[in-house]
Computed example of a mutant assay.
Amino acid sequence: MPKQNIHPNYNEIHVKCACGNDFTTRSTHRGDIHVEICSACHPFFTGKQKLIDTAGRVERFRRKYAKVEAAK
């Protein structure tokens, strides 16, 4: 027999970001949530993220494994 009333309530809440964006979602959390960063202002989601290849890591990786492939 399955247990009754073991799951928390799933409530509709409002999320407010520091950038001014606000949206509604559902959570087991009670009350509103205030966040510092959201998908509207996070660099990954806005396309403003900059990937920096410090010290040529990708090139160093390719050189390292080119030697392994040449040895085969």
Rank of each mutant, 00 (worst) to 15 (best):
K72M: 04
T24Q: 14
C41G: 04
C38I: 02
H7A: 11
C17I: 07
E36D: 15
R30Y: 07
S27M: 01
D32C: 00
K48C: 04
A70F: 06
D32S: 13
H14M: 05
T46Y: 05
F23K: 06
G31C: 03
A55E: 11
N5T: 13
K48D: 14
E69D: 12
H34C: 02
H14C: 03
R60Y: 11
G20T: 07
E69N: 06
H14G: 00
Y10M: 13
H42P: 03
C17K: 01
N11P: 00
L51W: 11
P8M: 14
R57Q: 15
T28H: 03
V68E: 11
R57I: 08
R57T: 09
K16R: 15
A55C: 03
I13H: 06
K67Q: 12
M1Y: 06
Q4V: 10
P43H: 09
F61D: 06
V35K: 03
H42D: 09
A71T: 03
N11L: 13
Q49A: 11
T46R: 07
H42W: 02
I37H: 05
F61H: 13
I6R: 07
A18K: 13
A18F: 05
K48N: 15
E36H: 06
L51N: 09
A18W: 01
C17F: 01
K67A: 14
A55S: 06
C17R: 10
T54S: 11
I37N: 07
V68G: 01
K3A: 14
E12L: 10
G20R: 14
F23A: 02
Q4H: 08
S39D: 05
P8A: 13
N9E: 12
E69P: 00
C19S: 02
E69C: 03
R60F: 09
V15M: 03
N11I: 05
T24I: 10
N11W: 09
A55Q: 12
F44K: 15
F61C: 09
D32L: 02
D53N: 08
R62A: 15
T24W: 00
T28V: 11
A71Y: 02
G20L: 06
K50W: 01
V58F: 15
R30W: 02
D53I: 01
T46V: 11
R30N: 12
K48F: 02
I13S: 07
D22M: 08
H7V: 12
F44Y: 14
S27K: 01
C38G: 04
C17M: 09
N5E: 15
K67T: 10
Q49C: 08
K3T: 14
K64G: 06
H42C: 13
P43Y: 03
R60P: 00
T25D: 04
